[in-house]
Design a binder for these strands. Sequence first.
DNA 1: TCCAGCATATATCGATGCGATATAGATTTG
DNA 2: CAAATCTATATCGCATCGATATATGCTGGA
Lengths: 181, 181
Amino acid sequence: MDTRTLCLGVLNRGDASGYEIKKSFEEGPLAHIHEASFGAIYPALTRLSDEGMVDCHEYAQDKRPDKKVYSLTEKGRSALEDALHAAPAPDKVRSDFLFMLFFAQLLPVERLAALIDARIAWYDEILERMTSCEELPKRPAGERFVHGFGLTIYRAARDYLIKNRAALLAECRGADQSAAE
Amino acid sequence: MDTRTLCLGVLNRGDASGYEIKKSFEEGPLAHIHEASFGAIYPALTRLSDEGMVDCHEYAQDKRPDKKVYSLTEKGRSALEDALHAAPAPDKVRSDFLFMLFFAQLLPVERLAALIDARIAWYDEILERMTSCEELPKRPAGERFVHGFGLTIYRAARDYLIKNRAALLAECRGADQSAAE
DNA sequence: TCCAGCATATATCGATGCGATATAGATTTG
DNA sequence: CAAATCTATATCGCATCGATATATGCTGGA
């Protein structure tokens, strides 16, 4: 799934600027599903515009760069539908957190604890934000389904960390001591 | 977490070639935690070798390219530890599957069903592989913790799909019909 | 009150990394 | 017996990331 298709997807939900598209991958309902950087989004929008997939309206703003708001054309919408009919590439996950925990025995126990606690706090924050979203019932079925999926996974992850934190720390403390002996 | 650090991590578990490092991100216990392509791994190993982070032993093989087996040096091991002490970058997820489901209303219901069924089958396969792993109890605490985390998440994801599949399809069927009227 | 830091907003650039491809014999599968 | 997959290294073009530049408004703490 390239950045152009991602942009088409966001624009299908409503007109947006490059900046707003970026934000929607950070905070909105698309957060943690996919992401893209400015360095990918701005060139993608320029190219989509050249190809007639999106229209661009420039709004002059006092003492700021013009805001360029993009909207999906019919051609863009049908390109999005085509892309959605291709086979999905396998998920890609890159988790420094899990990579670090994997090497728990190389870390001081206090750092391990801090890492896990920060992660639990992060899940709490996200779950709070996700459950307090009020316009959710009005959103299409697909969005609600994905939202529910996210909630389920984050809750399971958080619960696992809380339930197994103590055992991991105890084991690592034990290993530390027997190594020191 | 750059590819060089990922390679150091894999080599900390035992000597390996570039090919084996790649595989360990696809099948081994590090699967779905992080990944890297050949185009990133081979240059990374060359550079790690230049920097004295790894040693390289070449084994001549009949009628095949030499196999280059890398092993961690003391310097490499301490570089890995340093990297593990830095703050973890936030997780990056790129899921075409969830992105597609998000736009469920743009897809034919049969395709939606096929997408979800394929995903459930994928989870079943992975869970089967993860639970049938026998040398697990001998692995260090960190590896077992991460393994348990993966099991928990995959089970939760699979259960969610099974439980909510029918409702999503029904809703989309309903929306299709009212749009056709 | 002032200033630091963050938000808005677009854009570019160097470094990094992906995905496809080349090569080539061995091994498995239909 | 052929086709496909596996082992194994390596490179190349293109996409993408993350940092930075630019410019200004807003907000909160010393």
